[in-house]
Design a protein around this nucleic acid. Structure first.
Length: 132
DNA sequence: CATCTGACAGACG
DNA sequence: TCGTCTGCCAGAT
């Protein structure tokens, strides 16, 4: 990401610093939805973000996953391997313990993965706004 | 305290 | 149809 110069995002400071610093609400919701993803199914970051009402915060979904699997993972593990991008691409595979952990995990659930991409992604796609 | 980056997605040219 | 830019929120430097 180095389009050139996109450093403009500088809205006035937060009006209520004590409102909710770490928030965690968004992240918590993301984890909740991720856990609802049925095994053998996959969804996209945007789908989750949209379901939470933050369709434009799809990036945060991925960030939430990163924290979810970290050492500070909440009690329950989050199936981050079932969350892929809009193209069915395992964009987050590099963040797993091993580069093949994500694909291997999906294959274990019956999901075919080829070239880091979910085969038949459209058929396996699980949309929370529709299914939930 | 200011600035960039990041597991994406959608709009635009 | 493809390449590029912007938007979003939060964490890291």
């Amino acid at each position: 990401m180095s389009r050139d110069d996109r450093h403009k995002g500088h809205p006035s400071a937060a009006p209520s610093p004590t409102a909710r610093p770490g928030s965690g609400d968004f992240e918590r919701d993301v984890h909740a939805v991720a856990r609802l993803i049925p095994a053998g199914r996959v969804t996209s970051y945007g789908a989750i973000a949209r379901y939470l009402g933050a369709a434009r915060a799809s990036r945060m979904v991925g960030w939430a996953m990163n924290r979810a699997m970290g050492p500070g993972a909440e009690g329950e593990a989050v199936p981050a391997h079932r969350v892929v991008n809009r193209q069915g691409l395992l964009s987050g595979r590099m963040h797993f313990p091993t580069p093949t952990a994500m694909a291997d995990c999906l294959r274990a659930e019956g999901v075919k993965v080829e070239d880091d991409r979910v085969v038949d992604f459209d058929a396996l796609f699980w949309d929370p706004t529709t299914e939930l």
